[in-house]
């Protein structure tokens, strides 16, 4: 694609526990149960029907955000192919599929301190019992709205609207300064 050279993702400070954001293909799918089931067929991954749970298969993931709302994640460059596949699968099903690839950035936070860093400013309990691997939810981190997903025990992924990403990372870095304390 000719446009790769023109792409500028949000520039963020770096940290040992921070995975630099990588461009991705993202969609918000909204629709009734039948549409979600059909979309799962097209996406190649049954969409999670349990509240606040993510489903993954290879490099694709679907996150339950609401009773009729799913966030679909896939590697960069698959927007057109996913749109086409879902259009086929969803034929005859009322739904909304919106490309939000550029709306937000995915921030990976990993390591033994990941839970501690996030718990400081997220009002939800993030211990493994309350927030097990595979859980995802919309919540707030400090003053920013985020989607928080735990793909592994010591790995969290925050999906943050792009203009809030700098704030979120700077706040994490400020919290990190205390880890010695």
């Amino acid at each position: 694609m000719a446009d790769a050279a023109l792409r500028r993702t949000v520039g963020l400070p770096t940290a040992a526990w921070l995975e630099s954001p990588v461009p991705a293909s993202r969609f918000i799918l909204r629709g009734a149960a039948a549409a979600r089931a059909a979309a799962g067929q097209g996406f190649g991954l049954p969409l999670p029907e349990t509240a606040c749970r993510a489903a993954t298969d290879g490099n694709r993931a679907a996150l339950w955000l609401g009773p009729d709302e799913q966030l679909l994640l896939a590697p960069d460059g698959e927007v057109d192919s996913i749109e086409a596949a879902l259009a086929r699968a969803l034929q005859g099903h009322a739904h909304s599929l919106v490309d939000v690839s550029h709306r937000q950035v995915g921030i990976g936070i990993h390591g033994p301190h990941a839970e501690w860093l996030l718990e400081a400013q997220c009002p939800l309990p993030l211990n493994l019992r309350a927030f097990p691997v595979g859980m995802c939810t919309r919540t707030v981190f400090g003053k920013a709205e985020v989607v928080l997903w735990r793909p592994a025990e010591q790995v969290f992924r925050l999906e943050v609207w792009r203009s809030f990403a700098t704030y979120v990372v700077e706040l994490l870095r400020e919290i990190e300064r205390e880890s010695a304390a």
Binding site: I28, R30, E69, S96, V100
Partner: peptide, 12 residues
């Protein structure tokens, strides 16, 4: 109503 919303403020 069969109609859904998605914020795209920051997509564009």
């Amino acid at each position: 109503l069969q109609c859904w919303l998605t914020s795209t403020t920051e997509q564009w």
